[in-house]
Design a protein around this nucleic acid. Structure first.
Lengths: 107, 107
DNA sequence: TAAATGCTTATCCATTTGGTTAAGTTATTA
DNA sequence: TAATAACTTAACCAAATGGATAAGCATTTA
């Protein structure tokens, strides 16, 4: 359902959702297992899950009355790939500010 | 100024701000150079710059009437490091959903 | 020194976000 | 079959977000 990278970053840009991703990296978990550590009512929490699922960061499957959630490896890989492809660009100038000052005389 | 990772992700979770980061990866630029491609008034745009600066993703320096912006390499490195440290966790289950189905009988 | 350039500050506004409570619905369990 | 467990849906709300416009302020340039 995701298309643009900034949607994926947006989904990670919340403490609750980032914690859920960290937890799911350890393995699948049900909605209530995931909700446990977070001090908020379930409806608020499941909204966060929908944001993560909408961004393609997690997926889920309902069996009986339990919904089990998983990390979506391909999306994590895409994010990592984005940084990997750009790493040389930011390392190229080491410390950008210092490089700028040097290029322009330290005035 | 940043402390928690989700703040950094939040800063990247907007199309305009992500585009600014991409542009700065190519090298330093002034506020108006950065604003050029974006169809919005300057005050709205500079708010985005302040969010990026607050998250430690960019820094800036004013000389005369021109403010020059730079990428902050250490923060980019931190983000990449976060993914690098977790890569094994998501690759461990390849496709999480498939793994779950296998572990539980394909009912 | 007058005008233009490159921001910056202040105020405002509609929409989105992150939360709430109340009331279902669909499995399990006693 | 009655109760409980695990969500789900709906309606609501305060605060944050992303935008606008108007006006101001240094710094160059003519």
């Amino acid at each position: 359902m995701d298309k643009h990278l900034h949607h994926t970053f947006h989904a990670l840009g919340d403490a609750t959702r980032l914690a859920v991703v960290e937890q799911l990296l350890k393995g699948p978990a049900s909605v209530s297992e995931l909700a446990g550590p977070h001090d908020m009512a379930l409806p608020a929490f499941t909204k966060h899950l929908r944001v993560l699922e909408g961004a393609g960061l997690i997926s889920s499957q309902k069996k009986g009355r339990v919904r089990t959630c998983f990390i979506q490896a391909p999306t994590m890989r895409d994010l990592q790939g984005w940084f990997a492809q750009r790493q040389r660009m930011w390392e190229a100038r080491l410390d950008n500010l210092a490089a700028y000052v040097e290029d322009n005389g330290k005035g």
